[in-house]
C-alpha cells in the first residue's frame, strides 16, 4: 500500500501528456506498462488514473505524436502498444526545454533570496 501521508500529485493535462511522451522515449509500451513505469520512476508519488491515462493516450494518438499498434502479449492477450513518432519526439524536445526552464525558475523561487536581491 502507498504511504497514506504522501498525497497524490494532481497532474495538469499538459503535464501528463509530457510525462507519457517522456516515458515512451525508452521504447514502445502499452497503457498498463506506461502507468506502471510512471509510478515506479516517481517512487509511487505519481499515480496516473486510467480515467486520465487513456484519454491522454488517445488524444496523443489523434495529434499523431504517438502511433498505436495491436500486438499479442506473451499471455496471448491482444494489447495495444504505443510508440513515439517523429512528430512526438519533436514535441517532446520543445516540451523538455520548456520544462527545464520552468523547473529552473521554480527552483530559483524556492531558494531563500540573497541580501543583494532584496
Amino acid at each position: 500500500m502507498n504511504d497514506p501521508t504522501l498525497s497524490r500529485i494532481e497532474l495538469l493535462q499538459g503535464t501528463l501528456d509530457f510525462i507519457i511522451l517522456q516515458t515512451l522515449r525508452w521504447g514502445p509500451r502499452h497503457g498498463y506498462g506506461i502507468a506502471q513505469m510512471i509510478r515506479a520512476s516517481s517512487g509511487g508519488a505519481l499515480q496516473v488514473e486510467t480515467g486520465s491515462l487513456y484519454p491522454a493516450l488517445h488524444r496523443l494518438a489523434k495529434k499523431k505524436w504517438v502511433s498505436a499498434e495491436w500486438e499479442i502479449a506473451e499471455s496471448g492477450q491482444r494489447v495495444r502498444v504505443y510508440t513515439l513518432t517523429a512528430a512526438g519526439r519533436k514535441q517532446l524536445a520543445t516540451e523538455s526545454s520548456k520544462w527545464e526552464r520552468l523547473s529552473r525558475v521554480i527552483a530559483g523561487l524556492m531558494r531563500p533570496p540573497k541580501e543583494s536581491d532584496a
Binding site: 497503457g31 498498463y32 506502471q36 486510467t50 502479449a73 499471455s75 492477450q77 491482444r78 495495444r80
Partner: peptide, 17 residues
C-alpha cells in the same frame, strides 16, 4: 470494441501483477 479490449487487457495485467 478496440477500446474495450484495451481496457480489459489493462485490467487483466493489473490483476495478474
Amino acid at each position: 470494441r478496440d477500446l474495450d479490449d484495451e481496457l480489459r487487457a489493462h485490467f487483466a495485467m493489473a490483476v495478474a501483477d
